[in-house]
Lab assay of single mutants.
Amino acid sequence: GTVKVQGITIKVPNPDKAYKIAKKLAKKYNLTVTRKGNTIKVE
Rank of each mutant, 00 (worst) to 15 (best):
V12M: 07
Y29P: 00
G7E: 04
E43G: 10
R35C: 10
N30C: 15
D16P: 04
K36T: 13
P15S: 10
A26I: 08
G7A: 08
V5N: 05
K36Y: 10
I10G: 03
P13N: 13
G7R: 07
T34H: 04
K36R: 13
A18C: 15
K20D: 09
A26M: 07
P13V: 10
G37F: 06
I10Y: 08
K28F: 13
A18T: 04
K17C: 15
N38Y: 03
N30M: 09
V42C: 09
K24Y: 14
K20S: 09
V42P: 00
T34P: 00
N38I: 05
T9F: 10
A22D: 00
T2V: 12
N38K: 05
V12P: 04
D16H: 09
K17M: 11
A26F: 13
L31M: 08
K27Y: 11
I40G: 02
G7Y: 11
G1D: 05
I21E: 02
G37C: 05
D16W: 12
A18F: 13
G7L: 10
K17P: 00
G1K: 06
Q6M: 15
T2M: 12
K4G: 05
K23W: 06
V33Y: 00
I8E: 01
K17S: 10
L31E: 00
V5S: 05
Y29N: 01
K24R: 12
L31S: 01
Y19E: 02
E43K: 10
T2H: 09
G7S: 08
V12W: 07
T34I: 09
T2W: 15
V3C: 15
L25P: 00
T32Y: 09
K11N: 07
P15K: 06
L25N: 00
A18R: 01
I10W: 05
I21L: 09
K41V: 15
R35I: 07
V12H: 05
I21V: 07
K36P: 01
K11M: 12
Y19R: 03
N14H: 08
I10T: 02
I40H: 04
A26T: 02
R35F: 05
A22L: 15
K24P: 00
A26H: 02
V42N: 05
K36E: 13
K24A: 13
